[in-house]
Design a protein around this nucleic acid. Sequence first.
DNA 1: GCATCCATTGAACGAGCGTTCAATTCAAGA
DNA 2: TCTTGAATTGAACGCTCGTTCAATGGATGC
Lengths: 197, 197
Amino acid sequence: MARKTGSHAEITGPRIRDAALRLFARHGYAAVSMRQIAAEVGVQAGALYAYTSDKQALLFDLMKGHMEHLLGSWKEVARSADPAQQLETFVRFHIRYHLDRPDEVFISYMELRNLEPENFVALESLRRRYEDALQDILTEGCAAGQFTISDTRVAVMGLIAMLTGVSTWFRESGRLSRSDVEQVYWDMTRRAVGLAG
Amino acid sequence: MARKTGSHAEITGPRIRDAALRLFARHGYAAVSMRQIAAEVGVQAGALYAYTSDKQALLFDLMKGHMEHLLGSWKEVARSADPAQQLETFVRFHIRYHLDRPDEVFISYMELRNLEPENFVALESLRRRYEDALQDILTEGCAAGQFTISDTRVAVMGLIAMLTGVSTWFRESGRLSRSDVEQVYWDMTRRAVGLAG
DNA sequence: GCATCCATTGAACGAGCGTTCAATTCAAGA
DNA sequence: TCTTGAATTGAACGCTCGTTCAATGGATGC
C-alpha cells in the first residue's frame, strides 16, 4: 500500500505507472525489467513493491485503466439519435482518442498474450463492450435502412482494425493534420457501410 | 553451418525454424528462450548454434522469409490489367494468405520492435514494397476514373489494416467460411474505394 | 577394423531476472 | 527534543538467460 500521509513522494505511484507505460510500449512487457522501471522513476527496484503487487499487476492495471477510460470517454461523447451521426462521432472519437494515447493503445493490443488467463478474460470482456458499441450503431443504421452491410460483426472488426491502424503510421509532423486524417477515414467508413452521402 | 553430408539430422534446420515460429507467435520473442526452442526440437540448446548464429538471426530470418514469400506469392497472382479486378484479386489474396499463415503474419507485425535497427530497416523496406503494390492499384484505378479516393496513401494503410485484422478473429470453426469472409471484406473494400458495383 | 569427421552434448560463463526483507532514513506529531 | 512510523534502500535469494566450447559418440569412407 502507498503511504497515506502527505510527503515528498505523494506522486510516486502515478510516476511508476507512467514509466512502465512508456517502457512497455517501447520495448515490450517481457523485455522490460523492474529495475529499468525503477531507474526511470529514480528509485531502487524494491521500492516499486510498495505501489504494485508485482509486474503482472502493473501491466494489467495499465491495460484495464486504458479500456475503462476508453469506454467512459465514449459514453460521454455518444448522444446523437441518428445512426449516421453516431457513426461519424464514433469514427472521429476513435481516431482522436487513439492518436492522443499511442502508448496505451499500443500495449493494449500488443501485450494481451502476456496477461495471465484471468486478466486476459477481463480485458477481452472490456474490449468486447467497445466493439459492441459500434455494432449497435451499425445494426441500428441497417434497421433504419441507412446502411447496407452484409455482415455487421465482420464490419465491426474490419472498421475497428482500419481505424486503430492510424496510430501505426500517423506522425504529427507529417503531410496530413489530425482533422485531415479524421476526414479521410470518415469518408472511407461512410462508403464502406453503404451510407449515401 | 549445418552439415553437408546426408545424415539423420538433415531436416533439423527447418525444424528449428518451425519451433521458433510457433513459440515466438504464441509467447513473443522476448518471452521464449533458446532452451525452450531446443526442447521443442528435441535437442540441447547448444545444438541450435550449428544452424543459426544467434536468437536475433532466428527472428529476422523468419520475418524476412515471410515478407519475401508474401511478395513472391503476390507477383505470381497479380496479372489482370483492370484495376477493379486487380483490387479484388489483392483483397482475396491477402485474406487467404493471412489466414493460411497466422503465425508468420503475427510475428511479422508484433515483433518489429525486437529487431535490431538494421534488421528493422530491411523489414520495413519489404513491407513498404507490399504496400506500394496496393497503392499502385489504387492510383491506377483513380486515374481510370473507376475509384474515388480522397487520399490513396491513407487508403492503403486503412485497407491493409482492415484486411490484416481478419487473422485476429477468424476461426475455422466459426459462423463464416473463408470464402464468406473474403466476400464480406471485398464488399467493404469495393465500397470504401468508391467502386460502382 | 580403423581413422575421420562433425553434429550434438552438457557443463560452464557472467549477467540479469522478479521478488523479499532487515536495516536505514527522515519528516511529522507530541 | 524525542518518538513514531512509513518510504526507501541495498543486499540477498534462487533462477533463468544467451552463448561458448571441450568432450563425446556414432555413422561414413577407406
